[in-house]
């Protein structure tokens, strides 16, 4: 067991755990979007899980550092909050906010994080960019809504994990980046539609089971 101090509280966790996981396991919430505890090497792409750790002169993503005995962690400093807010505001600036008509309403990670950071979901600091990307909805059992997707990559990870080979992946780049099912051909059609691990992993209802909801 490893002991560390988080926000002046001593917690215990297994060796090899990430700081983020240790905190979550001990009831200390840190905003996070792109992390899943099953990941061996989290992508660290959402930049929401920042914390300050004694010995580092900059806030650091808690999903990518491992716990160490005697570590001193702060999750709520002004510096951390400022970075988290900016990261979150940037994410929302390309997110189609329409909570009332969204199936994730109330279970959405973005709503949870907004509340935690004392922010609304209609933000004004950055210009709102509508991601008007054209996609072909050709998947036999999944539906994808790019304007909601935060590109966390959790769905890809889970698919890879469940099936050995991911049947969805990032495509294109920049503002046009989407999750794509290209080549869902015959072989995949047989396997897909059985685990729905991707749908489960999605923090925002950008991936849905086809027909299981009304648009």
């Amino acid at each position: 067991m490893v002991r560390l101090v988080v926000d002046n509280r001593q917690i215990e966790t297994e060796e090899g755990a990430t700081v983020l996981q240790a905190c979550l396991d001990n009831g200390i919430y840190i905003p996070n979007l792109c992390y899943l505890k099953e990941m061996d090497s989290p992508p660290g792409s959402c930049r929401l899980c920042l914390v300050e750790v004694d010995g580092y002169n900059q806030p650091i993503t808690s999903c990518t550092i491992k716990v160490k005995e005697g570590m001193i962690v702060k999750t709520n400093t002004e510096h951390v909050r400022r970075l988290q807010r900016t990261a979150f505001e940037l994410l929302l600036s390309v997110h189609h906010v329409d909570c009332r008509r969204c199936p994730a309403n109330r279970s959405c990670e973005l709503q949870r994080i907004a509340k935690y950071l004392h922010l609304g979901v209609k933000l004004k600091r950055f210009e709102q960019l509508e991601r008007r990307v054209k996609i072909v909805q050709d998947h036999p059992c999944l539906e994808y809504v790019p304007s909601r997707c935060v590109l966390c990559g959790r769905c890809i990870f889970m698919c890879q994990r469940e099936n050995g080979q991911a049947m969805l992946s990032f495509a294109r780049r920049g503002l046009d980046t989407v999750i794509s099912f290209f080549g869902e051909g015959d072989k995949a059609r047989a396997t897909c539609g059985q685990c729905y691990a991707c749908v489960e992993a999605c923090p925002v209802a950008a991936l849905l089971i086809r027909n299981a909801h009304s648009q």
Binding site: S169, A171, S180, F181, F182, G183, E184
Partner: peptide
């Protein structure tokens, strides 16, 4: 072409969407 991408995927033993993802980048 789409079928060319599939062919490449098969040759390399990766999924079609992965090839597509790389190519569209």
């Amino acid at each position: 072409s789409a079928s060319a991408l599939q062919m490449v995927a098969k040759h390399l033993g990766v999924s079609g969407c992965e090839v597509y993802g790389v190519a569209t980048f």
